[in-house]
Computed example of a mutant assay.
Amino acid sequence: MAKAGTKGVARAHRERQILDIAGRAFAEHGYAGTSLAGIAADAGISKPLIYNYFGSKEGLYSACLTHAGETVAGVIERTDQLGYVGPEQAVLSLDRIFTTLHGQTWMWRLLHDPTRPATPEIADTHVHYQQRMHTVGAQGVADMLRKADNHDPLDASALTAAWVNVFDALVTWWTEHPGETPQAMTERAARLFTVVFGPLDLDALPLTTR
């Protein structure tokens, strides 16, 4: 892993390096088990520099969470705008997530970190990104049910809960099996959805892992 260093590096680039190193540490050890001194040592910088950039340990965690949330929610939202519906949309969204998070699965783990600080700022940030992702999932389910001429709101609520949990479970499973490549995971997701939904038109999808 590259050190952040202290000289000859633009501030924005150095911040991104610190976020990557800190995010990995928070995702692996939890908030309480991560020290700023350890992050500074891994980054090859001074501890005061972290305070200068992020204000506090909580500020650094919040910045990591925001970076992870913008990355993951952004991928899901941009994929939704491509206009696919149903299991094809799910496979395509998973494909983009696997590609984007390859080598940086800490982002997903941080968004699902049960040890995050229970402060208003952290809680609000976490809820914000969870809601953005849930909104895309709910809209995808609504589009799928509309195609089937199903307009029952309780059906939509139940299927959204199932859909979001399946999506989350597949990505979480991947983070726990680091030997699985993005391409292998996209292929696995397609196989599993085919079992449930029948043949999918995968050749029509702009998969990044193809």
Rank of each mutant, 00 (worst) to 15 (best):
P178D: 11
L94N: 06
L110H: 10
A142F: 07
A138K: 14
L170T: 12
H67M: 06
Y84P: 07
K57A: 05
W108M: 04
F54D: 00
A169Q: 10
H151Q: 02
Y53W: 04
I45W: 06
I45L: 12
F54V: 01
M107Q: 15
P120E: 09
W173N: 12
V72G: 03
L60H: 01
I76K: 04
V171C: 03
L111P: 08
A161I: 09
R132M: 08
D155G: 04
A73G: 07
Y129H: 04
F167W: 03
Y84A: 14
T100I: 13
R78M: 07
V166L: 13
T66V: 06
W174G: 01
R146E: 14
D152G: 12
T105I: 03
Y51A: 02
D155Y: 05
G83L: 13
L60T: 00
D95S: 04
T135G: 12
S46F: 03
M144V: 07
P114Q: 09
I97P: 15
G83T: 03
S46G: 15
D95M: 04
R132F: 04
G74E: 00
K47W: 04
L94I: 05
W174P: 00
A123W: 00
P120M: 08
T160H: 08
D149F: 13
P120F: 12
M144E: 14
T135V: 10
Q81R: 15
I122M: 12
A90L: 07
N165I: 00
A90T: 12
C64H: 14
E70I: 03
Y53M: 12
S62G: 07
G69L: 10
L110M: 13
R78W: 01
D113P: 15
Y51W: 07
W173V: 09
L145T: 14
G103L: 05
W108Q: 03
T115H: 08
F167P: 00
G137N: 02
H102K: 01
L170I: 14
E77A: 12
T175A: 05
G83E: 11
V72H: 03
V141N: 13
A118E: 09
R78P: 02
L60Y: 00
E176I: 01
H126R: 12
P153I: 02
E176T: 07
G44C: 05
H134N: 06
N165R: 11
Y129Q: 04
T105P: 01
Q104C: 06
A169P: 11
H102F: 08
L49E: 05
V164D: 02
G55K: 10
H177E: 14
T119F: 02
L65Q: 01
I45H: 04
L170R: 05
D168Y: 04
D155E: 02
Q81K: 14
P48V: 04
G140I: 00
G44Q: 13
G59H: 06
T172F: 03
E58R: 06
V127Y: 06
H177Y: 09
D95L: 04
H112C: 08
T100E: 11
M144R: 07
Q131D: 15
H112K: 12
L170Y: 08
A156K: 04
A148I: 09
G86K: 15
R132Y: 02
L145A: 11
Y129C: 08
L49F: 03
I50A: 05
D168N: 10
V127R: 13
Q104H: 03
T105H: 07
V136A: 07
E176C: 10
V164M: 13
P114T: 09
L92Y: 11
V164P: 00
K147E: 15
G55S: 07
Q139W: 06
